[in-house]
Amino acid sequence: MTITVVILLLISFSVSTAASETSIYIIHMNLSAKPVPFSDHRTWFFTTLTSVTTGRKPKILYTYTDSVHGFSAVLTNSELQRLQQKPGYVSFTKDSPIKLHTTFSPQFIRLASNSGTWPVSSYGGGSVIGIIDTGIWPDHPSFHDEGLGSIPSRWKGKCEFNSSSVCNKKVIGARVFNKGFVSYGPQSFNL
């Protein structure tokens, strides 16, 4: 009888541990399913996420609106399953650390040519991506802007560094997207 109780306790501990583990997921939503009362997609995404999150504050890392509509969030497996039942849910992709070592971007970021984000976004048609980089050293002489003309007036990019003084007429736009990295922790990336 004692052995049976110990086994049941171990099974229930492993089930509760697995249910509470979180991962980062990129959630693709159908914007046309957004209920009218929501003034914008971000409010809808957050409300939807709040409705499936239990025992902790929901956290949206990023929202996506240009090529695909959706958001990335930290979820448990059970929260992801509840989210899949919500109106407007299309699909998910589990985010995971990727070792940097290639110049073949579509394959590197695991874009499938026949399904998912890439074909839904018309293979990036109409999008301009200058550089996706692991970082720059803005103080390096190659980034000085002496002799360059003004920034084009049509430029709509942003300069988001720890210090806004880093951007100039050569480095006209740069953003930091590290919330997933911070959520996983640097030890996950084998840097």
Rank of each mutant, 00 (worst) to 15 (best):
S150G: 14
V74M: 10
I24K: 03
G125E: 14
F181A: 10
K34Q: 15
G125F: 06
P97C: 07
S153K: 12
I132S: 05
N168H: 13
N178M: 00
H140S: 01
S78R: 15
E146K: 11
F143V: 06
F45M: 00
F45L: 05
H101T: 14
L100C: 03
G149R: 02
I98W: 00
S39P: 09
G135L: 00
D95P: 03
S32H: 06
L100V: 08
S16F: 05
T93G: 10
S20D: 14
Y62E: 14
Q187R: 04
T93P: 02
N190T: 10
T76M: 12
V36N: 14
D95W: 05
S153C: 08
A174H: 10
I11Y: 07
N190G: 09
T54G: 12
F177E: 13
T4S: 09
F45E: 00
T2Q: 08
S183P: 00
I129R: 08
I129K: 03
T4C: 03
F104D: 01
F92I: 03
P119E: 04
T2H: 04
S127E: 12
V90L: 12
S153Q: 13
V68Y: 09
S91R: 11
L75Y: 12
I27D: 00
H69L: 09
S127K: 03
N30I: 00
L83N: 00
K170T: 13
S121R: 05
K94P: 03
P37Y: 15
K179A: 06
G147V: 11
L100N: 12
T93H: 10
G130W: 04
L75V: 09
S105W: 03
Y25E: 08
L61S: 11
L31I: 12
I24H: 05
P87Q: 15
S12A: 06
N178P: 02
Q187W: 08
T48C: 06
I151R: 05
S51V: 01
P97N: 08
S14P: 01
F181K: 13
K59D: 10
S153D: 15
G157T: 07
S164L: 04
S121M: 07
S51D: 06
S12H: 07
I26W: 04
A174Q: 04
S115K: 15
E79M: 13
S183W: 13
S122Q: 10
T48G: 04
L191R: 07
I172G: 05
L191T: 03
P37T: 08
L8Q: 13
F13Q: 14
I136L: 07
S67C: 08
L148N: 04
S165K: 15
F13I: 15
G157L: 01
Q187A: 15
I60N: 03
Y25H: 02
S39T: 15
S32Q: 07
S188Y: 02
S16N: 09
D139S: 13
I151M: 05
Y25V: 03
T22P: 01
Y64F: 00
S127V: 09
V90N: 08
P35A: 09
H41E: 14
K169C: 10
Y25D: 00
E146I: 11
F13V: 15
T4N: 13
P58G: 12
F161W: 08
G70Q: 08
V128D: 02
L75P: 09
S122N: 14
T50Q: 08
T4I: 10
S188F: 02
F108E: 06
G149Y: 11
T93K: 11
A33D: 11
K169L: 14
W155Y: 14
V6M: 01
T93W: 00
K59W: 00
T117R: 01
T54W: 12
W118N: 04
F104L: 06
V68P: 02
